[in-house]
């Protein structure tokens, strides 16, 4: 199962770049036979992960680096990796709980959305070193039909 296509890009941790990042990934993913709904869901999960890197990882510091790698695999699954070098997550289990947030003014829905709209979600994080979120969407049966 080799790699079919990928893009890799990095950008500074500015709120302005969140819409850029999700639009980029959405445009790349449209190579697959996704519906508009699929693309919207993909844009949402990217928005959540990138916002988390800026808000939590970097405490809204704007001159830090965020990296994204998007891969379309041979089996036509889509893999998105969002990486920051920020403060990291102490307790990943807890962070993933629905409605948990370290910030009382937030709702703690980001990871719940990421999980709802993907087939696999892994979080790698180390306090003081950063966070890497990997999201994967499988090629669905409906898509297989549309594709054949």
């Amino acid at each position: 199962m080799g790699i079919k296509n990928y893009v890799h890009f990095e950008f500074s941790s500015l709120p302005e770049n969140v819409s850029f990042a999700r639009a980029c990934v959405g445009a790349f993913a449209s190579q697959l036979d996704y519906t508009l709904d699929d693309i919207e869901e993909i844009k949402l999960v990217v928005s959540e992960a990138v916002s988390n890197s800026i808000i939590h990882g970097y405490d809204n510091k704007t001159n830090q680096k965020i990296e994204i790698t998007v891969t379309i695999n041979e089996d036509r699954s889509l893999e998105i990796i969002i990486k920051d070098y920020g403060k990291g997550i102490e307790n990943i289990e807890k962070a993933m709980e629905a409605t948990y947030s370290s910030d009382p003014s937030r709702m703690g829905l980001g990871f719940t959305f990421m999980k709802s709209f993907t087939d696999e979600m892994d979080i790698l994080s180390k306090p003081g070193e950063g966070t890497c979120v990997r999201l994967k969407r499988n090629f669905t049966n409906e898509q297989k039909e549309a594709f054949s």
Binding site: K43, L44, S47, S51, L109
Partner: peptide
Amino acid sequence: SFVDSSGLGVIIG
């Protein structure tokens, strides 16, 4: 045309 948890947070808040 688009809302994520940040926008939603404003509405729920």
